[in-house]
Amino acid sequence: MYLIKRKKELNSTVTLMDIYAPEIAKKARAGQFIILRVDDQGERIPLTVADYSPEEGTVTVIFQVVGTSTMKLNAKREGEYIEDFVGPLGRATKVDGFKRVAVVGGGVGCAIAYPVAKALSQNGVEVVSIVGFRSKELIILKDEFERVSNKYIVMTDDGSAGQKGLVTDALGALLEAGESFDEVIVIGPLVMMKFVSLLTKKYSVPTVASMNPIMVDGTGMCGGCRLTVGGKVRFACVDGPEFDAHQVDFDEAIKRGGMYREHEQHSRESCNLFKNN
């Protein structure tokens, strides 16, 4: 059992939790993920490490409430426990050997983009962060990003904060203006990552996408997380989660991501936990 040491709502559907897991906190690096199970009947769900504190012994996860498992997790309170918490899994992000990197985050993907930006900045890399949200109320980790970024650009769909438009508009403008990046790291919805990738390909900027496909074990055993990258089958859990975005078959990943959509809808309607409330 793993203690929820802190719980904080970042916006109406996104929650942050610090989980007490000292051994994982000691080993975790930006870009890696954990798998958790809320209770005995729970599904194994992968969440990328949003932060870690070896001193406090905690690992931070940030999640959006989208289905049964994240609803159940969100129903847990500070001081309560979750059943299983395993990690760190996957390969860590490469955060050194660069001069200037653009970190592009979309929605709750910013939770993953933030530790990457932070690690880059700690390694002396100049960080330009471009984050996109639907509207002002949904913005998360603003102060954190500002602290670790040399430039911080907010885009909103409705223009209620920052500039009105998409992250690709902001990134495209910078690239068009001749700004150079050693690498672009993009983390967010698959559609967003696809279009960022198409954009940077045009400008020949190396781009890394952090993939978050459906997974069971997270150790290479199930193959459920397989993606086509450069025409080859790769497992996000052991070969990733980050891949060369220009090689990823995003259209396939989008379809595979929707494999259980019907099940999710059904289980949300019938989940006893929420019926009783």
């Binding site: 150790t219 055993m221 193959g223 459920g224 397989r226 089958v233 078959d249 396939e252």
Partner: peptide
């Protein structure tokens, strides 16, 4: 534990599982 696939077209379609999964 690492599952093998055949390397034939269509193995990444939704509805294709490794036996492990």
């Amino acid at each position: 534990g690492l599952p093998r696939f055949m390397g034939i077209p269509g193995e990444s379609l939704c509805g294709v599982y490794s036996a492990n999964e």
